[in-house]
Amino acid sequence: MTTSSPISSPVPGGAMSSFMAGARDSIGMSFGAMLFGLLFGSAATVAGLTMPQTVSMSAFIFAGTAQFSTLALWQPDMPLFAVAVSVAMVTSRLTLMGLSLAPTIRSMPPWIKPAGVFVINDAAWVLTLQARSVSSKAGYFFGISAPMYTLWVAATVVGVFLAGFFDPVTAKSLAFAGIVFLSVLVGMVVRGVDAPRPPLVVAALVGIALDGVLATGPAILVAVAAGGITALAVEMARDDH
């Protein structure tokens, strides 16, 4: 089977066929979600969280970066404000994804919209924006998100049992594999999302320049602002031409 860009795979039919198309196109991304889930379950157990606490995190938060940032501050006298600020910073991109996915979420029946908001994630965002020929974007979005969520929680459970199984070198390299996963997501944005490309380069360069100068959260916000200004400039220049 091929997992190349879903742009070229026209899907006839209604919401169910779009759901199946989404599930099929999410297989590659699910591999990354499984890896992250395993690592999170393992890391949380090593940090001392119980199984119900670990699984609750994956089931109710469903955002890897937020879960790892909470884990980083996990201690007997937990600084709740610091946890809140950290979580808000690292999940700011989910707000931007919600903004971008708003037309898709608005097209959902009212009873399922809250679920649609809850499962907004990186892979569902990029794949849904790429899919221009599906009949139901909402169905396609859930086709990606439902398996991702299920695998994420299941992999967390497996990770709990694998805690301490990996040697330090393997664990460290698997943790870095998360960056590889995100780099593929950036590649998907470059290949298939209807958006200008220069802002990505600007945001990446600003991110590198601010690394070590600002904390990760503020650095991302500044980089996104720089990317946004670049996007505006590119679009205005396009209009002029």
């Binding site: 919600g98 209807d194 990505l200 380069v201 990760t216």
Partner: peptide
């Protein structure tokens, strides 16, 4: 984000700018 979109007048150009922003965040992380 979803609620904020109600207050945004989204033409094609605005949607392209909005679509670029999450990618910028990912690039700034990676």
């Amino acid at each position: 984000g979803v609620l904020g979109a109600h207050f945004l007048r989204t033409g094609p150009r605005t949607q392209r700018i909005v679509n670029a922003l999450p990618g910028c965040a990912l690039a700034a992380i990676v």
